[in-house]
Protein backbone atom coordinates (compact mmCIF):
# COMPACT_ATOMS: atom_id res chain seq x y z
CA UNK A 1 0.00 0.00 0.00
CA UNK A 2 1.41 3.39 -0.99
CA UNK A 3 1.98 6.23 1.50
CA UNK A 4 -0.83 8.74 1.97
CA UNK A 5 -0.58 11.91 -0.10
CA UNK A 6 -0.44 14.89 2.25
CA UNK A 7 1.00 17.77 0.27
CA UNK A 8 -0.96 20.42 -1.58
CA UNK A 9 0.92 22.40 -4.19
CA UNK A 10 -0.21 26.03 -4.40
CA UNK A 11 0.82 27.64 -7.71
CA UNK A 12 0.09 31.37 -7.95
CA UNK A 13 2.15 34.45 -8.71
CA UNK A 14 0.35 36.36 -5.94
CA UNK A 15 2.23 35.83 -2.68
CA UNK A 16 -0.72 36.89 -0.54
CA UNK A 17 -2.93 34.29 -2.14
CA UNK A 18 -0.29 31.60 -1.72
CA UNK A 19 -0.06 32.50 1.97
CA UNK A 20 -3.84 32.34 2.38
CA UNK A 21 -4.12 28.99 0.59
CA UNK A 22 -1.23 27.61 2.61
CA UNK A 23 -2.97 28.66 5.82
CA UNK A 24 -6.18 26.85 4.82
CA UNK A 25 -4.23 23.76 3.73
CA UNK A 26 -2.37 23.70 7.03
CA UNK A 27 -5.62 24.12 8.93
CA UNK A 28 -6.72 20.84 7.31
CA UNK A 29 -3.68 19.02 8.64
CA UNK A 30 -1.98 19.02 5.27
CA UNK A 31 1.32 20.41 4.04
CA UNK A 32 1.39 23.33 1.63
CA UNK A 33 4.17 23.82 -0.87
CA UNK A 34 4.21 27.11 -2.74
CA UNK A 35 5.28 27.81 -6.31
CA UNK A 36 5.25 31.26 -7.93
CA UNK A 37 4.94 29.95 -11.48
CA UNK A 38 4.56 26.79 -13.49
CA UNK A 39 8.29 26.27 -13.82
CA UNK A 40 8.66 26.08 -10.06
CA UNK A 41 5.56 23.87 -9.89
CA UNK A 42 6.97 21.29 -12.30
CA UNK A 43 10.28 21.37 -10.47
CA UNK A 44 8.52 20.47 -7.21
CA UNK A 45 6.50 17.74 -8.90
CA UNK A 46 9.57 16.19 -10.47
CA UNK A 47 11.25 15.97 -7.06
CA UNK A 48 8.44 14.42 -5.07
CA UNK A 49 5.27 13.58 -7.03
CA UNK A 50 4.25 10.79 -4.69
CA UNK A 51 3.26 13.09 -1.87
CA UNK A 52 1.09 15.52 -3.85
CA UNK A 53 -2.57 15.32 -2.88
CA UNK A 54 -3.81 18.20 -5.04
CA UNK A 55 -2.59 21.15 -7.09
CA UNK A 56 -4.17 24.58 -6.79
CA UNK A 57 -3.26 26.27 -10.06
CA UNK A 58 -3.67 29.91 -11.05
CA UNK A 59 -4.53 30.67 -14.66
CA UNK A 60 -2.65 33.91 -15.38
CA UNK A 61 0.97 33.58 -14.43
CA UNK A 62 4.25 34.73 -15.89
CA UNK A 63 6.15 32.17 -17.88
CA UNK A 64 4.49 29.06 -19.20
CA UNK A 65 0.97 29.23 -20.67
CA UNK A 66 -1.83 27.36 -18.81
CA UNK A 67 -2.26 24.63 -21.47
CA UNK A 68 1.35 23.37 -21.52
CA UNK A 69 1.50 23.85 -17.76
CA UNK A 70 -1.45 21.50 -17.15
CA UNK A 71 -0.04 19.02 -19.68
CA UNK A 72 3.28 19.05 -17.79
CA UNK A 73 1.53 18.50 -14.46
CA UNK A 74 -0.51 15.63 -15.90
CA UNK A 75 2.66 13.94 -17.14
CA UNK A 76 4.04 13.93 -13.61
CA UNK A 77 0.90 13.17 -11.60
CA UNK A 78 -1.67 10.39 -11.83
CA UNK A 79 -5.10 11.38 -13.11
CA UNK A 80 -6.60 10.73 -9.70
CA UNK A 81 -4.77 13.72 -8.21
CA UNK A 82 -7.05 16.74 -8.72
CA UNK A 83 -5.68 19.84 -10.39
CA UNK A 84 -7.90 22.72 -9.27
CA UNK A 85 -7.95 25.84 -11.38
CA UNK A 86 -8.12 28.84 -9.05
CA UNK A 87 -8.57 31.99 -11.05
CA UNK A 88 -9.96 35.51 -10.99
CA UNK A 89 -10.90 35.17 -14.65
CA UNK A 90 -14.55 35.90 -15.42
CA UNK A 91 -15.25 32.50 -16.97
CA UNK A 92 -13.40 30.14 -14.64
CA UNK A 93 -15.51 27.06 -15.47
CA UNK A 94 -15.07 27.54 -19.22
CA UNK A 95 -11.32 27.92 -18.86
CA UNK A 96 -11.13 24.83 -16.65
CA UNK A 97 -13.01 22.78 -19.26
CA UNK A 98 -10.69 24.07 -21.98
CA UNK A 99 -7.76 22.76 -19.94
CA UNK A 100 -9.48 19.43 -19.33
CA UNK A 101 -9.91 20.12 -15.61
CA UNK A 102 -13.01 19.21 -13.66
CA UNK A 103 -12.35 21.27 -10.54
CA UNK A 104 -12.15 25.02 -10.27
CA UNK A 105 -12.54 27.86 -7.81
CA UNK A 106 -13.47 31.34 -8.89
CA UNK A 107 -11.72 34.12 -6.95
CA UNK A 108 -12.83 35.43 -4.54
CA UNK A 109 -14.21 32.29 -2.96
CA UNK A 110 -15.38 31.08 0.45
CA UNK A 111 -12.60 29.27 2.30
CA UNK A 112 -15.07 26.45 3.02
CA UNK A 113 -15.18 25.71 -0.70
CA UNK A 114 -11.44 25.17 -0.70
CA UNK A 115 -11.69 23.04 2.42
CA UNK A 116 -14.39 20.92 0.75
CA UNK A 117 -12.15 20.33 -2.24
CA UNK A 118 -9.27 19.32 -0.01
CA UNK A 119 -11.48 16.96 2.01
CA UNK A 120 -12.75 15.38 -1.18
CA UNK A 121 -9.20 14.94 -2.43
CA UNK A 122 -8.14 13.32 0.80
CA UNK A 123 -11.16 11.04 0.77
CA UNK A 124 -10.50 10.02 -2.83
CA UNK A 125 -6.86 9.36 -1.96
CA UNK A 126 -7.86 7.20 1.02
CA UNK A 127 -10.60 5.31 -0.83
CA UNK A 128 -9.77 5.39 -4.52
CA UNK A 129 -12.61 4.48 -6.88
CA UNK A 130 -11.99 1.12 -8.61
Amino acid sequence: MSAMRTTVLVVDDDADFRGLAAFVVASQGLIAVEAADCGECLEVLRKDPERILAVLLDYYMPGMKPGPCVAGIRELLPATVPVVLVTAAVDAGQRARELGLTHWLSKPFDLDDLRAILRAARSEDAHPAI
Binding site: D14, L20, V24, S27, T87, A88, A89, V90, L111
Partner: peptide, 24 residues
Protein backbone atom coordinates in the same frame (compact mmCIF):
# COMPACT_ATOMS: atom_id res chain seq x y z
CA UNK B 1 -12.42 41.24 -18.11
CA UNK B 2 -8.82 42.03 -17.27
CA UNK B 3 -9.84 44.82 -14.88
CA UNK B 4 -12.24 42.44 -13.13
CA UNK B 5 -9.46 39.88 -12.88
CA UNK B 6 -7.01 42.39 -11.45
CA UNK B 7 -9.58 43.76 -9.01
CA UNK B 8 -10.60 40.30 -7.84
CA UNK B 9 -7.02 39.43 -6.91
CA UNK B 10 -6.71 41.87 -3.95
CA UNK B 11 -10.40 41.27 -3.12
CA UNK B 12 -9.61 37.54 -2.80
CA UNK B 13 -6.81 38.27 -0.37
CA UNK B 14 -8.94 40.72 1.62
CA UNK B 15 -11.97 38.41 1.82
CA UNK B 16 -9.91 35.27 2.44
CA UNK B 17 -7.73 36.72 5.22
CA UNK B 18 -10.75 38.39 6.84
CA UNK B 19 -12.55 35.05 6.90
CA UNK B 20 -9.48 33.28 8.24
CA UNK B 21 -9.07 35.88 10.99
CA UNK B 22 -12.72 35.64 11.97
CA UNK B 23 -12.56 31.85 12.07
CA UNK B 24 -9.47 31.91 14.28
Amino acid sequence: AVAAHELKTPVTAIAGYAQAALEN
